[in-house]
Write a protein that binds this DNA or RNA. Structure first.
Lengths: 246, 246
DNA sequence: GCCTCGGCTTGATCCATGTCAAAGTGCTAC
DNA sequence: GTAGCACTTTGACATGGATCAAGCCGAGGC
């Protein structure tokens, strides 16, 4: 997970990775944000926030992966979001957390205490505006995922997830859209199942099927090569598609 | 659908029904909003916006029901939102619509042309702030619905939908939470199926089953009585639950 | 080198829900 | 009244994915 040294990651000099908060900020606003930020590290598997907890910060992921999940009393769980580097966590204006947030790899977050952050939102319209934009993006992504959960077959679901991760990976790697792509799956089969509303057995079977049909190739369990992205998108049953960027 | 006469519905004197935009606005801001608003009527079945269309207004539902849907090329469709009176439609800062919006009953909307509305957002922080809050609510609702779509059984899905509509209805009827409730289903079985990721036959069967088991009673096809809301919530497999307010 | 353990794969079987088909209900137009 | 139509219910059957169960693979510990 090539964790960057923390000194390289801050609001003033990493607007791309840190686009969640900073992309549109003016430099004096950046300095103001810098003055209230701090870093936190979590180990793989460690919970970051528990649903219903008081949440006294907002922030964005610097490195590592976290998941947002909801759980029913009987243990059925559904992942409702995947947090990759640069994604934002937090609900300005809300007290409690609505989901469980768990680090699935070692993870570093750049945090802002909630109170001062909210005060800044009032004084610097750029931040509030950017936050609205981000929330609209997440809403689009969540609704796109509703189509996946409600109407797609297991095979299409897997293909959709792979496409999202591939696209997301590509956007971090400058150079843009090539036809062939290779990336590491940041999720266990069980986590994929929780994302897709399937069982881990079905995920495993469909991965095998896609491999047999040449849609993907696997090195080990986690490293995926997609020989032809167009092919994968077709399997996913969608071409338009704005992606699931959270 | 007891459509109110239009003269009774405007931003200055109906803050409750119209809470989408007005709840927190100061009176001079209300006047400003009033100056750019206009009304539009749609007939049952009429599309309001087509996915991908340019969208030159935002607004909120005054009376009637509309649905947000996504459709795959082969015709599978998933409803991603249900718009009831007071709900907001629109994506300030975005050009194209992301979903199909269709009036399922005769419908009246209170609209604001997008450009002036966006200008007002810049000058009146209350509006921008309120909009962020609403978008966060919708995001929560969408994510809650992901759990329904991904992990609940057909029976639980139906119960969840009935619970949402009942709760929503109750919040419009002052008097608050009683144990017994009666309301009209604003959706056909097919629309329910599209919301729940089921077929209309399954919806019909599960409605019959819930009726046979005394969880609900039906007068005709559409009028539903819930003798015990607690019971229904238990069937839905959830008690906490913030509802699906869109 | 072998053991253990977590994650993954594969097989056999079951069942919830989809699919296809027919018939029922109630409303509107004539 | 009755013909037509949209919506709904119900039945019979098919099937995708869940469940239960066994075994595989690779990494780390001793």
């Amino acid at each position: 997970m090539n964790a960057p040294t923390i000194s390289h990651i801050n609001c003033a000099d990493c607007p791309i990775r840190h686009r969640a908060v900073c992309a549109r900020c003016e430099s004096d606003e950046l300095a103001a944000l810098d003055s209230i930020k701090y870093y936190r590290s979590y180990e793989a598997g460690q919970p970051i926030i528990w649903s219903g907890d008081q949440m006294n910060f907002v922030g964005s992921v610097v490195s590592g992966i976290a998941t947002l999940t909801q759980t029913m009393e009987d243990g059925r769980t559904q992942m409702v979001g995947l947090l990759l580097p640069s994604d934002f966590v937090g609900r300005p204006g809300r007290d409690g957390a609505a989901y469980n947030v768990v680090a699935t790899t070692d993870l570093v977050m750049c945090c802002f205490r909630k109170k001062p952050f909210e005060e800044m939102m009032v004084t610097t319209p750029h931040i509030a505006h950017r936050l609205l934009e981000m929330t609209l993006d997440e809403l689009d992504a969540a609704r796109e995922w509703m189509l996946v959960l409600g109407r797609k077959t297991a095979r299409e679901k897997i293909a959709s997830l792979l496409a999202i991760i591939a696209r997301r990976d590509a956007s971090l790697t400058p150079g843009g859209a090539v036809n062939e792509m290779t990336f590491d799956l940041p999720l266990t089969r069980e986590a994929m199942a929780d994302y897709l509303g399937l069982t881990l057995e079905t995920v495993s079977r469909q991965m095998s099927a896609l491999k047999k049909d040449g849609v993907i190739a696997l090195e080990g369990k986690r490293r995926v090569t997609v020989p032809d992205m167009g092919n994968l998108l077709e399997e996913a049953g969608d071409d338009s598609d704005g992606g699931f960027l959270m």
